[in-house]
Nucleic acid binder design. Sequence first.
DNA 1: TGGGGTCCT
DNA 2: AGGACCC
Length: 435
Amino acid sequence: MSFIPCDTSMIALVDCNDFYASCERVFDPRLIGRPVGVLSNNDGCIIARSAELKAMNIEMGTPLFQIQALERKGCIALRSSNYALYGDLSARVMQILDEFSPGVERYSIDEAFLDLAGMQSPEEICRQIVHKVPVYTGIPVSVGAAPSKTLAKVASHLAKKQAGRKGICVFHSANDPELINWLNTLAIEHIWGIGKRLGRKLRQHGIETALQLREADHNWLKRHFSVPVKRTAMELNGTNCLTLDDTPDPRQNIMCSRSFQKATNSLTDLKEAIRFHAQTACQKLRKQNGLAQAILVSVRTNSHRFEPQHKEARAWALPVASDDSALIIRYAQEQLEQIWQPGFRYRKAGVMLLDIIPWRPMQLGLFEHQQKEKKDQEHKRRNLMHTLDKLNDRIGRDAIGFGLSREQADWKMKMAYRSPRYTTCWNEIPVVKAN
DNA sequence: TGGGGTCCT
DNA sequence: AGGACCC
């Protein structure tokens, strides 16, 4: 039996630089070198910025109206968020990372943890990653590596922040003097896992920096705070106590919800929205080979307004575990009619699929002739769904589905600055012209 | 800023 | 179930 001592652990965090803005640049090179901002759903505010936009001191969360004049003058470029594009490019990046380690945890759309334990030269691997990913995908990345996830986060921060590092920062030991120096200046609430509230509470006890946290008594931390805070302190000490989750369990719930561009009371509008979300949720469900046993439909008004409020969500068990879009849409719409009330301006609607179990053939009834009929029916349904999913995968999501939504419905998102779905929609793939 | 998640209590 | 945290 081989024994690998803990202090040989080495975790790398690969982080895409300004991911959404970089994605927009991949297919629109005119944006290279320009300040680029990506907007939230409904074009509300800035949620991602290129380096040039950051340099203009345009902060995260800046409302669109404050920068619209700059956009019109051509000083900055804006894009509505295009998650089909970002998801696709993310998958390409992750695919390349898989070549560098057998243990890759897709932590978020633009970040992954890699297990580099036992590899000869983490620096060399990081260098190759930082070189290869942009060459193959057009997305620049930086890498931080250290003995624990929390320290890898710290390293990744430095990799980005300090220009001389060229996007790479490796700490072999938690006792690296440079690392200790940095931890000494790192404010407590900037540590991964310590948010605003915990930060405030820790400060009340005199703990203000990352270094102070890691030197605090761990049992005291566990008693006065929580197990996670204690674990964060251990991680800062270089003890790798957060596992690398490279094979996450399939979802037990799938939720799809969106706020509308304009509030609406129309039941027709809401039914359309619910149908749309139920359909998207079912696509995700089938992709993970699951069956839902219950659904939940929710609607709510805009709580930021001084007007009559109504917020309701109701769950309903399905008669049989199902992944059938038509059936689930029907149930979801029936439920919507139960909770919808006249006189409210609804701002958001959603569908959640609950109690998801792995797919299995339908349970059989008591009588044989019924069995055969039901089996045939189920078979046909599955074929239909399969065909739908394949077409939507190939032609572009929402290319084909149940029912039609009106192009300009209130419940739809506002996406005035949307870029083409370069990678997921045949009508919008880029055209290369050559003379 | 808002639509997803996770984990812990 | 709700809180806290994450991206």
